[in-house]
């Protein structure tokens, strides 16, 4: 009976396991579709989707799939065996975790930088004019949790300026912060310059002169043991190349 159960479990799970690794044919011959799975920081959502489309256009039979999330979440998932072929982090600390776990297929390369900006609802109801204003009493401030890159940067900025922030919520990713601002629940949120650009009319951005002091650097690397090694390398090159860099700059990212 015991072996029967085991057989049944295996029968049920094996086909699922097989689904996860359909990117075994990296040469992409014939009409077979090869899937490249890219794990990227939440702040890269819009840009990487565009870069992905351009990459697909130049590579026949290749489909790029993305998993966007907090960088710390993503690196944990990769450590637990998530089927990522490429990892793009919003800071070097989380990429270091990948390297330390011997999971980086190649030396990580920096492909973009980002700085902080304050996002407020379109009418800026609390009249936020600079980073110091975020400490105002009664202001509904939302920031990233200290363990995610945008939160770490916010914390560093606050420490640099000697401002004590009392957020009403610490969110798990920069997109969650933005959601609280666009819905009007928060008076202000600390996000990246690129998030303010991407949000368009949904938020008003408040820049502050000290923003250049804390710069987040975005590294990218293929993941060790990927079945689509060549394709993963190609994608990294593509992000670092002219097309990728142009998309990133249009979205407000800086060059490393």
């Amino acid at each position: 009976m015991k072996s029967l159960v085991l057989t049944a479990v295996l029968a049920l799970t094996l086909p699922l396991a097989a689904c996860g690794s359909d990117s075994d044919d990296s040469s992409g011959g014939g009409d077979k579709t090869t899937t490249l799975t890219v794990y990227a920081a939440a702040s890269l959502t819009a840009t990487f989707e565009e870069i992905g489309k351009k990459f697909e256009a130049e590579h026949d039979g290749v489909k790029v799939e993305f998993d966007f999330g907090g960088s710390s979440d993503l690196v944990t998932q990769i450590q637990e065996g998530a089927p990522a072929d490429v990892f793009a982090s919003a800071d070097t600390a989380n990429m270091d975790k990948l390297v330390d776990a011997d999971l980086a297929g190649d030396d990580p390369e920096n492909f973009a930088t980002n700085t902080l900006e304050i996002a407020t609802p379109p009418d800026n109801p609390a009249g936020v004019a600079g980073f110091q204003d975020l400490a105002k009493k009664g202001l509904q401030l939302v920031v990233c949790a200290p363990e995610v890159p945008c939160g770490a940067a916010t914390q560093t900025m606050a420490d640099n300026l000697g401002v004590t922030l009392k957020p009403v919520s610490e969110e798990q990713s920069v997109t969650d912060v933005l959601a609280k601002v666009t819905s009007g629940e928060a008076d202000a949120g600390v996000v990246y310059v690129t998030d303010v650009t991407a949000a368009g009319d949904a938020v008003t951005g408040v820049t502050f002169p000290e923003s250049g002091d804390v710069v987040n650097t975005y590294p990218i690397a293929p993941v060790e043991g990927t079945d689509a090694e060549d394709l993963a390398d190609d994608f990294v090159e593509f992000v670092l190349g002219d097309t990728g860099q142009q998309v990133l700059q249009d979205a407000g990212f800086g060059q490393p």
Binding site: V142, A145, P167, V168, S169, E170, E171, Q172, D176, K180
Partner: peptide, 12 residues
């Protein structure tokens, strides 16, 4: 909770 209330130690 995470959508409506946010996440702050001791409060939500």
């Amino acid at each position: 909770t995470i959508t409506f209330a946010g996440s702050l130690e001791g409060t939500t």
